[in-house]
Computed example of a mutant assay.
Amino acid sequence: MRRLVLLAPAVALLAGCGPSTVPGTATPSPPSTSTATAAGTALPPDPQPGATEDCPYLDSEFVADSNGQHVSKVRVSADKPHPACFFYRPDGKVQLTVRVYVGDPKTATALVNKAAPVDTSNPASDPAGWKGGYQSTGDGAVYAVSKGGTAVIATTNQKQSVKARTVVKKAIAALKL
C-alpha cells in the first residue's frame, strides 16, 4: 500500500507530460513504420517497377518453372547496382518479386524482419549461413534472408513458400558480391 501512495504523485506528474496540441497548429504524425524500425534503423523505400528489361539475377524461364506460371514481362526497379525484379503473369499482374539489398547489416536484417516478421514467420536458414523467415501472406508467400549486409527477399502469388525459397537461393547464387 505504501508503494501506491509514493507512486501516486509521480503518476500525476507524468500524466501532464504527454504531447499537447495548440489550437490552430498541425497535429504531429507518428513515425512511418515503412521507413523506420523500432531500433531506429531507417529503411529504404519499397522498390517500384520501372524499365522493362531482364532481371540480372534470374531469367524468366527459371521463374516460370519455379513459380508455376508463364512470365509475360519483367520489369526492374531503378535501384542500382541491385535492382528489384518484378515478374508478371499473362493477365498483367505481378506473380513474383525479388528484392536485393546490399549495404548496412542492420538495415539488411530490418528489411528481412519487415518482410517476414520474427514474431509471425517460420525461421529460415537456407542457403547455409543466411538467416531470416518465411510465411504465407494474404495473397501468396514470402521468403526473406540476410547475411551480413545483404538481404534477399522474394514474394510470390503462390501459397507455397518453397517457390519463393527456390528463387531466393538462385538469386543468391547469381549475385556477384
Rank of each mutant, 00 (worst) to 15 (best):
P123M: 14
G68W: 01
T37K: 02
A15F: 15
R3M: 13
V142Y: 06
T41S: 06
K147D: 12
G129E: 07
A154K: 04
F87S: 07
A38G: 05
K147H: 09
G24L: 02
S77N: 02
P105C: 08
A84M: 09
V63G: 09
G148P: 11
P19W: 11
S121I: 06
R3A: 12
Y88G: 05
V94G: 05
D139A: 15
A42H: 11
S66P: 05
A26W: 01
T33Y: 02
G16K: 09
D79W: 00
K163I: 04
A110W: 03
N122R: 15
A26S: 13
W130Q: 04
P90E: 13
V142G: 00
A26T: 11
A141K: 05
G40L: 02
R89W: 00
V5S: 12
A124V: 00
R2K: 07
L43H: 01
S146Q: 11
Y134V: 10
V100I: 04
S136G: 15
P117A: 12
T35C: 05
N113E: 11
T52W: 00
K159L: 02
P45A: 08
P105M: 02
G50T: 00
R3Y: 12
L111G: 06
P90D: 06
G50N: 02
T41E: 06
A42Q: 07
P45Q: 08
K93Q: 11
P105F: 00
T137L: 05
P49A: 07
H82Y: 08
K114H: 15
S72G: 06
A124S: 13
K80E: 12
K163E: 04
V167A: 03
S60V: 00
A26N: 01
T52Q: 14
A51I: 13
T150H: 10
A84W: 03
L58P: 05
T156A: 05
T35L: 04
A173H: 08
K93G: 07
T137K: 04
Y101K: 03
A144G: 11
K114L: 10
P31V: 10
V74E: 06
G24N: 00
S32M: 09
A39C: 03
T156I: 12
